[in-house]
């Protein structure tokens, strides 16, 4: 089960944070710790790091780190590709996504995430289904 998802840039600025509940004070601490944990890892290392009693699966895209924290028994590679699928969806939605898109449209990113993941589990794996759904929702605004 996914415990949290973080999008952070190299400086540690959070661009998206999704938690299956945590206390407020914990959230900021977690963000700080995860950033420190992943930012200096060699690109030749694994995409997995232990984090407290869980593990963080992360992947770097340009200056952005996508980190998903899951249970230690979870399938690492499946979540690693889950990150990539998410990036593909963002890329499709913003056509050629960059960090600025995510900054100025952070609320849209939350909307997409809500179609992608729910209750700490994967909800939909079809890019097409999610993009179409986003189209529907945009019409309602």
């Amino acid at each position: 089960m996914i415990r949290f998802i973080l999008l952070q840039n190299r400086q540690g600025k959070t661009r998206l944070a999704y938690y299956v509940p945590l206390e407020d004070s914990e959230k900021h601490k977690v963000e700080y710790e995860v950033h420190r944990l992943v930012v200096n890892r060699d690109p030749k290392f694994t995409n997995f790091v232990e984090f407290r009693t869980h593990k963080v699966i992360y992947r770097r895209y340009a200056g952005l780190f996508f980190s998903i924290c899951v249970d230690i028994t979870d399938n690492e590679l499946a979540y690693l590709e889950c990150i990539h699928l998410f990036v593909e969806i963002l890329d499709h939605f913003f056509s050629n996504v960059c960090e600025l898109d995510l900054v100025f449209n952070f609320h849209k990113v939350y909307l997409i995430l809500d179609e992608f993941i729910l209750a700490g589990e994967l909800q939909e794996t079809s890019k097409k289904a999610i993009i179409e759904r986003m189209g529907e929702l945009e019409k309602l605004e």
């Binding site: 590709e81 994967l122 794996t125 097409k128």
Partner: peptide, 21 residues
């Protein structure tokens, strides 16, 4: 399996993993 549910040619790896789980 509909095309949209294959990922790089693999029928939803996530669902496969979940099912085996």
């Amino acid at each position: 399996i509909p095309q949209e549910y294959t990922y790089y040619g693999i029928p939803s790896p996530w669902l496969q993993v979940k099912t085996m789980r």
